[in-house]
Design a protein around this nucleic acid. Structure first.
Lengths: 335, 335
DNA sequence: CAACGTTGTTTCAACGTTGTAAACAGGCAC
DNA sequence: GTGCCTGTTTACAACGTTGAAACAACGTTG
């Protein structure tokens, strides 16, 4: 193994504990001793063994971030902020991929315990609130995203219902009357889809417009394109589409353009997530932009509070901010 | 803390070591004892404390993946495969972001040691081969990507020179004669840019065509768009552009389309990386598709070999495979 | 000058695990 | 009964660290 406190102590001619005290900045160490120890420390290039420190202190300095897929742009961008926020608390971040699969989500919850990871930020897809509540493990947990509200753990997300309503209102405000929702999911009762669908419905109902809802299996470009194609073939083709995320929207735009139609002139398109692709697509994509930095920061802070504070701290629900980014895909002007 | 071997041993009425033996699948344990212990294990829901195990064994079961930015699609997609490949060896993966910054790359190399991480897969941008060679740390290291060849550590990458030459040949094969290279970098002598530039030059020289090379600061969409705009303004506007990655290419396409020109009719565009965006952009993007799964798998395997094998194992250079994905952005037919 | 507080340093034990070596039981051959 | 395998189980020590407590030296106070 590497250099231990013992080696440093031997070289400096002091006890192991004194070296430990110097390393940890303990106040009552004489200047002379401190200097001796410091010299030995740098001569041997000592690095603390975190496994040992953690064994002693019961903390590992590692948190996990459980996501469906790291290579979906939204999650990749979010990860960036989570890693940065965690670094401010001197945590490093392990990424775990669940593929939105229940078994994998359970594994992540378990694996976190195996590795004595200090806490977990999880973006759940499949797991239910009851199962989370029943979990025996007491590792700190923060939920990220829209899947579970009023659950057994701290939670941070934007107000999806309101955001979805606002996007839909925006599309209606362009004068469109056949506004479709793309991205519903049958088997996700309390998930992302259902809250966004709810917002869409509120807006459509408020304006007395008929609803058109298309379901998808997953939230990818391919699914967005396929779903859009069925919409294009329908007798009452929409003149605007609210896609439940940007990938669906990009796929949908691709399908519209491939069919020889124009965006936004023939069909306006909006999404959610504000991924970078949408800022450079042709046309650029109108979207709901969640404050990802805030989401990440709040999630990490909640974890920190949970770890430092008493275990019976009440569960927190935090709403992060967002704003509507209006771009070419819903531009009223003809570009 | 949680349940320890000691607790299980007490309940089962055996020694701590016997429980350890059962947990680790040691052969010579009588069926009766094994059953007693197993019952106690599941009754208490025992989970090994990896900090302790690691302290004992000198391994942490954690590897790090050092990348410039996790939210660049190429790296996000690569991460997915690295995490999956690592999981097969029961490793978990910490993501470290360097922002392509020398100081951050140094920190990652150091931080890895602090956390006693078993190994590091690094995609270097700024750090030099000399500095890596001089590093005192003996943590296993694998380099990923094109930055450093014949360096002090195992290395895996595709043959970038050849790939770049093939893309350029493909563009020339379309009958284009003013083929520009977009993505050169002044201050990266042995980096991604220079190998791709080399391949471009080889192809252009072989056909006696004049070179046009545009530099960029970074490999993002915005830079691709900006660089393309300068090309569009130039007196001898290119009829094809080989961009050194897909983000540059997507930005470039955006600029071309915004200027009212068509891709590929007026200007054909090709990139490198095969990120998902390029499969759904309008038009879809021709690109060099590295086998990311292979890259990740080889990197992890090299790390594994380095960890298990003797320290003086000779440095390995591995070439991963790739293929040219021809899509609409270089299609000869008029879509 | 005795009792006490402060500062600096050390000793000890413990965190949970596993490798080593040794102890132990049973069966078998002599 | 003794010796010797084989299989099973255990005691002990060690990985590197730090909290608690003890201790030594010294200065202050009544």
């Amino acid at each position: 193994m590497g250099v231990s406190l013992r080696d440093v102590a031997r070289l400096a001619g002091v006890s192991v504990k004194t070296v430990s005290n110097v390393v940890n900045g303990y106040a009552h160490v004489s200047a002379a001793t401190r200097e001796k120890v410091d010299r030995a420390l740098s001569e041997l290039d000592y690095r603390p063994n975190l496994s040992a420190r953690n064994l002693r202190q019961g903390r590992t300095g590692v948190i996990a971030l459980g996501l469906p897929e790291i290579d979906k742009p939204y999650f990749a961008e979010l990860s960036r902020f989570v890693i940065a926020a965690a670094a401010e608390h001197r945590w490093i971040v392990v990424i775990e991929q669940t593929d939105g699969d229940l078994g994998r989500e359970r594994q992540v919850l378990d694996g976190v315990r195996d590795h004595r990871i200090d806490g977990l930020i999880l973006s759940p897809v499949a797991i239910g609130k009851e199962e989370l509540a029943a979990r025996s493990d007491d590792t700190a947990l923060v939920l990220l995203g829209e899947r579970i509200h009023d659950g057994p753990a701290d939670h941070v997300a934007i107000d999806n219902v309101r955001a979805a309503r606002e996007v839909t209102e925006h599309l209606i405000g362009l004068g469109r009357t056949r506004v479709a929702a793309l991205g519903a999911q049958e088997n996700a009762p309390s998930g992302t889809s259902s809250v966004r669908l709810e917002g869409y419905r509120e807006a459509m109902a408020a304006h007395g417009l008929p609803e058109t809802v298309v379901e998808v299996e997953r939230f990818g470009r391919a699914e967005g394109a396929a779903a859009m194609e069925t919409l294009l073939d329908s007798p009452d083709r929409p003149d605007a589409v609210f896609c439940f995320n940007d990938l669906l929207a990009l796929g949908a735009m691709r399908a519209i353009l491939s069919a020889g139609l124009r965006v936004p002139q023939d069909i306006a398109v909006a999404g959610v997530d504000d991924i970078e692709d949408g800022r450079f697509s042709t046309p650029t994509l109108t979207t709901v932009a969640p404050d990802k930095d805030e989401l990440a920061r709040v999630a990490v802070d909640l974890l920190k509070r949970r770890l430092d504070g008493p275990l019976d701290h009440p569960v927190q629900e935090v709403r992060a901010s967002y704003h509507l980014m209006i771009r070419e895909s819903t531009s009223p002007a003809r570009p």
